[in-house]
Design a protein around this nucleic acid. Structure first.
Lengths: 154, 154
DNA sequence: TATTGTTATACTCTATAACTATA
DNA sequence: TATAGTTATAGAGTATAACAATA
């Protein structure tokens, strides 16, 4: 046996931001998916539900850009949510190429249920951070995403 | 047209940690891959190179666990790096089931080149953070990853 | 029995191009 | 001519089960 298996971050990787992001995002998104499993959706579906949750108007393309996905990927996401009766495509009279994506009544109820479920069981990855630290990492993540993520930035 | 496309983080998502992680990690890892493109490897390969860069001993399984990948995925990663002459599988006399994964001379040179390239062009996602903020996000990411990410934690 | 490296397989995700209907 | 939604397709990535060699 070569050596004891280390599962935590090796000291030499403690300042490799890209490595930390790969590990942390994987943990956070998997944990989120487990919390969402009872609702039979994953974190991407939940993002769509949250984005359209107030009565703002969202097209599929705008959803895709905001989530950093390609519009072609959004189709299947929306299809799935529609087949579960959580959202609805509504024709947009102003521009008949577009759809407005809106929550159904079931969708609104589901968002509330998920929100209350998330408030009850604080996910493990946040349990290790204080409230102030959670706010701080959210702020830094927002700065990392930046104001406009273009296709070819370094 | 429904409305102007917003590419930055919508205010209502500013505290949805999972959403921020999805967007930020995507940006960071894609930017890292672009910086690594001249070396014809991606961020995962670079993680392997960094982990084995000093003379510590690493088996494929240990690499997989440390990177949060399955051992089955590590095989192709190691195959690729070996075919490019950057690393070498060396039989481990103490346990003949294992290989020691080590850098070749070319591999050592490549790691140095990448390090110096990364020092020259600071990636855009870090450009928006100060040195102190970069240290802070690295620390918080480490805490997020936690001491031992098990398979079924919430 | 359990573990290391490996193959095979199926499934999801991603990237790209192209089509249609509208603008 | 450009854009929204869509389809098709090929390539990565992921998850799972199984196997041979070794412990």
């Amino acid at each position: 046996m070569i050596s004891e298996v280390t599962v935590s971050v090796p000291p030499k990787m403690a300042d490799e931001t890209f490595f930390l992001f790969a590990r942390a995002a994987d943990r956070v998104l998997k944990a989120t998916d487990r919390l969402l499993a009872p609702f039979e959706i994953c974190h991407r579906h939940y993002s769509v539900l949250l984005l359209i949750a107030d009565d703002e108007e969202w097209s599929q393309t705008r959803l895709a850009k905001t989530m950093g996905l390609q519009k072609t990927r959004m189709v299947a996401l929306i299809d799935m949510l529609e087949s579960k009766g959580l959202i609805q495509r509504e024709p947009n009279a102003n521009d008949r190429r577009e759809y407005k994506v809106i929550l159904t009544e079931t969708g609104k109820r589901t968002v509330k249920e998920i929100r209350s479920s998330f408030n009850k069981q604080r996910p493990s990855y946040l349990r290790e951070l204080s409230g102030a630290e959670t706010q701080e990492i959210n702020r830094l993540l927002g700065r990392t995403i930046g104001p406009a993520v273009c296709q070819n930035d370094l």
